[in-house]
């Protein structure tokens, strides 16, 4: 539901980046989002379409890439939790501990790449 706010921030970053390079036409925006960033891709795409409609970025394409979750167990092992629903409390393949992991990647939300002319 907060995707509208996210896309609004995204579009202002894109505007800045294009202005810096004196580019006019936006073709592609690529966003990388962690699996723990609470992003619903369909809602992002919908927000992007709605917020660019009738403006200078109309017709640009939003590409979304998911960054997998990597957890670090207190035993030192890093691993990908297999089950999506158990992202924060998956068993560690090295020692079996289920809890107390720290999130190494998976919370990111960043603009990765723009194509424009």
């Amino acid at each position: 539901m907060h995707e509208i706010s996210i896309v609004t921030s995204l579009l202002s970053l894109v505007e800045e980046e294009l202005a810096k390079r004196q580019l006019q036409k936006l073709l592609v925006v690529r966003v990388r989002h962690g699996a723990l960033a609470n992003i619903v891709p369909d809602a992002m795409s919908f927000a992007f379409e709605a917020l660019t409609l009738g403006g200078p970025f109309e017709g640009a394409r939003l590409e979304l890439e998911e960054e997998p979750v990597v957890l670090r167990c207190s035993c030192g092992a890093s691993f990908n939790p297999e089950q999506k629903r158990e992202l924060l409390f998956a068993p560690c393949p090295a020692c079996g501990a289920t809890w107390g992991h720290t999130v190494e990647t998976g919370r990111e939300l960043y603009l990765q790449h723009i194509e424009a002319e």
């Binding site: 970053l13 603009l111 790449h113 424009a116």
Partner: peptide
């Protein structure tokens, strides 16, 4: 033209 950017989308809020 391809532009690599890498910027936190919520950086303004942060």
């Amino acid at each position: 033209m391809e532009i690599p950017v890498i910027r936190n989308i919520l950086e303004a809020n942060s």
